[in-house]
Design a protein around this nucleic acid. Structure first.
Length: 564
RNA sequence: GCGCCUGUAGCUCAGCUGGAUAGAGCAACUGCCUUCUAAGCAGUGGGUCAGGAGUUCGAAUCUCUUCAGGCGCACCA
């Protein structure tokens, strides 16, 4: 868990704090209150490795010009026993820190030591966190929104894992309630229509009109024949649902597995009814006085908890709503299973539920801040520059399996994690399929393959990567080498940032940047050179880049080919 | 009508808790393969950060407002 950026920032932070105290003691500055010191990486290289704006922040308190404050601080700054090489005042009052090269060379030692674990940090402290994602309705196939949610949720879970959380991936199977009822009626209608003709049974208006319902019943008939025509409606619907639901859930599992996603838990909504937790939850809310009856339905006073409207918990027909089960589900996550934090990933079409869900959390005595709901904007699929609504092959709505048929898992996972959850995403099928420089996933993989190729070539001549204690790392001085080293050093901080902001897309962009710096290095510097000392140092550098690219791609579950 | 999200280069998007000259990829144009993979690199052009007002040393970033687009406002999930 070596984080060199953090080490450097801590040293700088320390130096600033001490310098402020000394300046105050020397009466060059009045007593000032220091908030958290902001240390950032300047955009311009000439501004050093790190910079701080403290001098500007305390301008008002100190009643001095920012540049003057900065000068005073620099004069008191003790740099011995640190990686800081040079400090200077710049611009309106920034203090810029230049670090010794030795600091950067430490990165290679860290990567050598930690290998496949380099990048892991422990801000999570093994806290139990659940990421619930996709949770597609098992009454039909998964759509593009599920595909995005899958890539996003799975990669977020990985990022949190690397950040030191104890992560559980969960899929919530909506196998109870109203939609299963509709599913049953739809299946029944298709069964009868298939056997006795379209007019034999009216198809319910609000039923599931998809072709997949017919497919289920065709296969069912192939297995069981027409014997269910004479069975009583309730019973045969149950048989149909049991048959189709299992098939759908198996398909969900298979599709998601093919997509690189394996859940720790497939949690069934029906369990909440079987264990009576839905009723318990409703009773609890009623005891607390958070419900009321109106027109024979039971309502939750969501408006008392900041929502816009009250919500029905139990319909006038006595059947609890999805929302009632969802409250019980979240109570189960926090209270029964003891998760300390829960992240739900929802499509943008569900954003209206956020306020009431958070309100319900409060009502059942859970801290709403421990529930993070990530609202993911919807996906538009493009093909030939136009919005594609239908699959080429089936002519139906494009499903996750259609997508994976047209493109690759690597491309899909990468593309869906290039954008933040909150941004509307256009998925360009042609681009994802194209095996060209336009396709960013190849760009990263190509960098990895190129490095492997160099290493293999040298290995054939008996030249192997050596451990850092045998190397003269100070031979790495070219700008392209320095930039690479810096980028390598940033990985732990990037994981921290991605985990805290819950945005795995930051990691995707990180690895793109790293690949870009490697390609620049490749064109500017040769590894295989006459000067053996230099060659060995560079070989170590590219091997370290290889490890970091591989670590990140592993984290995102994207393959890292050794040849392309 | 109300609520949430979005608006940055021709296109798709970055821009981390406000910071120094607003970036990348694609597209366009110009160069670079007899030496480690050209799925690559280097360079050029391209911007009223949707418009307006405010907050302050300093705003793409925060506040207000107008405009445009997406989504949601069920005893559906």
């Amino acid at each position: 868990m070596i984080n060199l950026v953090e080490i450097a920032k801590n040293q700088i932070n320390d130096a600033i704090e001490k310098s402020v105290s000394k300046a105050i003691a020397a009466q060059q500055l009045p007593q000032v209150q220091l908030d958290e010191i902001v240390i950032e990486v300047p955009r311009e290289k000439q501004h050093g490795d790190f910079a701080t704006n403290v001098a500007m922040q305390i301008t008002r308190q100190a009643k001095k010009a920012p540049r003057m404050i900065a000068d005073i601080l620099i004069n008191h700054m003790a740099l011995h026993d640190t990686y800081i090489e040079k400090v200077e005042v710049a611009g309106p009052g920034f203090i810029n820190f230049h670090l010794k090269k030795e600091w950067l060379y430490q990165v290679l030692i860290a990567i050598e030591k930690e290998g496949a674990d380099y990048g892991k940090i422990n801000i999570g402290n093994n806290q139990k966190v659940m990421v619930e994602f996709v949770s597609a309705n098992p009454t039909g196939p998964m759509h593009m929104g599920n595909a995005r949610g899958g890539a996003l949720g799975d990669c977020l879970a990985s990022v949190l894992d690397w950040a030191g959380y104890d992560v559980t991936r969960e899929f919530y199977v909506n196998d109870a309630g109203n939609q299963i009822e509709k599913f049953g009626i739809s299946l029944e209608a298709r069964y009868i229509q298939l056997l006795k003709g379209e007019d034999a049974f009216p198809f319910p208006e609000d039923g599931y009109h998809g072709e997949d319902i017919k497919d289920h019943m065709r296969d069912f008939i192939a297995l069981e024949g027409d014997k269910y025509l004479d069975v009583e409606s309730e019973e045969r619907k149950q048989a149909f649902v049991a048959f189709a639901l299992k098939r759908n859930i198996d398909k969900l599992k298979a599709d998601l597995k093919a997509y690189g996603i394996e859940y720790d838990v497939w949690f069934h909504e029906s369990w909440l009814y079987e264990s009576n937790e839905v009723q318990e939850t409703i009773d609890y809310l009623t005891e607390k006085g958070y419900t009321y009856k109106d027109e024979d339905a039971l309502w939750f006073k969501a408006t008392e908890f900041g929502a816009e409207k009250d919500v029905v918990l139990v319909r006038n027909n006595g059947i609890p709503t999805y929302f009632a089960a969802d409250i019980a589900y979240h109570r189960n996550k926090f209270v029964k299973r003891g998760f300390e934090r829960v992240i739900d990933i929802w499509g943008a079409d569900h954003h209206g539920h956020v306020a009431r869900m958070k309100g319900a959390m409060q009502a059942i005595g859970c801290d709403p801040d421990k529930l993070d709901i990530i609202i993911m904007q919807l996906v538009r699929l493009f093909r030939n520059g136009e919005i594609a609504r239908m699959s080429k092959r089936t002519g139906r709505a494009v499903t996750l399996s259609d997508l994976l048929e047209e493109t690759s898992v690597d491309a899909a996972r990468f593309f869906f994690n290039m954008r933040q959850a909150g941004s509307h995403l256009d998925f360009d099928l042609d681009l994802a399929v194209s095996q060209s420089n336009e396709n960013p996933v190849y760009y990263v993989q190509y960098a990895h393959a190129r490095i492997c190729s160099i290493i293999n070539l040298l290995a054939q001549e008996g030249i192997k990567v050596q451990s850092t204690d045998k190397l003269n790392l100070s031979r790495l001085i070219e700008p392209e080498e320095i930039e690479l080293l810096k980028k390598l050093a940033e990985l732990p901080e990037e994981i921290k940032g991605a985990a805290l902001s819950m945005e795995p897309s930051r990691i995707t962009r990180y690895v793109l940047d790293l690949a870009s710096l490697f390609h620049s290095f490749y064109n500017a510097c040769r590894v295989k050179v006459e000067d053996e000392e230099l060659m060995m140092a560079r070989l170590k550098l590219v091997d370290s880049v290889r490890i970091v690219i591989k670590n990140v791609l592993n984290m995102l579950k994207i393959s890292a080919p050794e040849q392309m």
